[in-house]
Write a protein that binds this DNA or RNA. Structure first.
Lengths: 348, 348
DNA sequence: AGAAGGGTGGAATTCGCTTTCCGAAATCGG
DNA sequence: CCGATTTCGGAAAGCGAATTCCACCCTTCT
């Protein structure tokens, strides 16, 4: 197969090729094919389309972007695309984007603010239409200040910034009511009869950790139960984090625990593995609850109590906000609902 | 916050702004910042970089693409990004791409050839450097012929096509030895004492289905066991497919089955749920094996026997092939290894 | 009938950047 | 010390498409 050697690569057909073939000017061809304000004579249109078809013309997106000065690409920044939560979100964002005629490029931040900054910078160069920044934010403002600056420059350029579930920065976004969700979960669990809780948090600096822990604490407070600081164990916001945290727990502490709330499902799953590894039965010896309701929960036994984040809606809303104009920074809040399952049975 | 209204958007700083600020020509600035063949005087370099820094310059990627005629973007086409297998692959591809200085854009084909064709066409317009086409191919050549044509045009344009685990088309690629993997699995299972098998296939037209089923059958053959056509049940290549196939199975058929091999893990997980739903115990009543070794297997009990696909390696190889020049269509074969776990215990 | 106006095609400019192509200065060789 | 070669900055010509501006023609109204 001697196709496409470096030398004999046929150079792609351009708009002017099409125009020439159709016997019209480039301007007319452009107007016909991409439909501008101006109309073009029906017969010419036909000729142009026929020519385009015959030549197999496809518009050069980069050239269009340069000429128009704006692109139709939105960038989605996630911590880790292999994470079930983010990959579901990516799927929903892509579906919504598709419907809106937008392209999506995904980039991975590896949970590093530094990397986020680099990526935003690069995206400014790509003239992306919007940046959807998912993944939990950081509480440390020294850390995020340069990110904010970079994002502001992105907006200055005409781009739009949409935060997902991390309203720690002054931009538009769609927010999960982490606080309320966790609060209601706590409340529901108390009503099931649980009294002794431990919380598995992700990194301390994460907004999601803070909010979910705070919400859970508030929920318990409402029932007169105090969640001491010593009852919150911080590790990583991931499966391994959950697993390791359990491994590191003292036997007596574990024995004294009625229910473990992991601030996200991945951690809860890690914790589940960790508990089993230690010979504990769930929910027999200890009950377990998570947050997010990721898809892979459907595979486990016992079914797991969690707080469902309507991920489809999040994706849709994120794209909607990306397309909005104006400066509204009021986050659109998506409500999370408590889903009680077998991992937290009612106590007699 | 009155930043970035549509009207007062500061237009982005361009290379010529930088050049002017540094008191050099645009050509020199370009050479300094993007390093061409030619060198530029160290002092000027400094001046230019300082200016760029001060102005917060970022190169306009689209403009670069237009000017250079080639881009640094590779496209990854997957069936469904929310699928654990594909999201892991995406992660590994992105990591490898990052290391090679490439950008990745992900697009979702929704398991439709039509959609694949559209996407390839669009990517031709984007002048992507390469297209990595993952997700199982189709056996029906009437279906794939237009896809091949589109891909050939993409290559004619200078792009590179890399197939992953679907060497059904005449392009470079990285291939999983589905056949060998399934064959060895079958062999291992027979040695564990299993005799009565059922296979859960995905769509009949999928290359992956065909190869894995054929491999499994060949493996059994080697031990004198024949897998009749009636023992292969085709449904969808997804969790739901596995679940539904089990639901639809006749009680007596199920009772007569020693082991179910699902051609991928998602299906196996669906099958597991389906079996439990029918009150069957795994591996007590029936043993179960899958293929891929996706990450979420670590969450389930019993641990599941599967064939591990080294997804990191696949991603790395895919990017490597995307960067290769020349016409080699010999696929780089990645070997899958059998992993026996609790879902298929040794019999008696 | 003639002026005003709407519709429509085309030439030329523009977008931001890369890359020839030139020419001047610097370096080298004998 | 002078011609030959190399080095390096800048002017200008692209890259592919959008768009402005101009010219022309055909209506339409008076």
């Amino acid at each position: 197969m001697a196709r496409a050697n470096e030398e004999n690569r046929r150079k792609p057909v351009t708009l002017s090729d099409v125009a020439r073939a159709a016997g019209v000017s480039q301007a007319t061809a452009s107007r016909a094919i991409n439909g501008s304000q101006r109309t073009v004579n029906e017969e010419l249109r036909q000729r142009i389309f026929t020519a385009a078809e015959k030549l197999n013309y496809t518009a050069n997106l980069s050239a269009q972007t340069v000429a128009r000065g704006t692109s139709t690409t939105v960038a989605l920044l996630v911590s880790d695309i292999a994470d079930a939560y983010f990959s579901s979100m990516a799927a929903s964002v892509m579906t919504a984007a598709e419907a809106a005629g937008l392209r999506v490029t995904i980039a991975v931040t590896e949970r590093s603010v530094q990397r986020e900054i680099e990526l935003v910078r690069e995206l400014r160069g790509q003239h992306a239409r919007a940046i959807i920044l998912a993944g939990s934010g950081y509480l440390d403002s020294d850390l995020t200040e340069p990110l904010v600056r970079e994002l502001e420059m992105f907006e200055d350029m005409g781009g739009r910034v949409v935060l997902v579930s991390r309203m720690d920065l002054p931009f538009a976004g769609v927010d999960l009511d982490n606080l309320e969700g966790a609060k209601r979960l706590a409340s529901a669990l108390v009503r099931l009869g649980y009294q002794s809780f431990r919380v598995l948090g992700g990194e301390r600096e994460l907004v999601a950790t803070r909010d979910r822990v705070a919400g859970f604490r508030a929920g318990l407070d409402g029932h007169g139960i105090t969640l001491g600081d010593d009852r919150v164990i911080y590790s990583n916001f991931s499966w391994e984090g959950g697993f390791d945290a359990i491994q590191a727990m003292d036997d007596r502490v574990l024995a004294d625990t009625g229910l473990i709330f992991a601030v996200n499902d991945e951690m809860a799953l890690g914790a589940l593995a960790g508990l089993r590894n230690r010979g504990m039965r769930v929910p027999g010896d200890v009950a377990l609850a998570g947050f997010d309701d990721i898809r892979s929960l459907r595979n486990i036994v016992p079914t797991m109590t969690t707080v469902r984040v309507p991920i489809e809606e999040v994706g849709r809303e994120a794209i909607a906000r990306a397309l909005e104009v104006g400066d509204g920074h009021q986050p659109r809040v998506v409500t999370a609902i408590v889903v009680l399952r077998e991992s937290t049975p009612r106590l007699n």
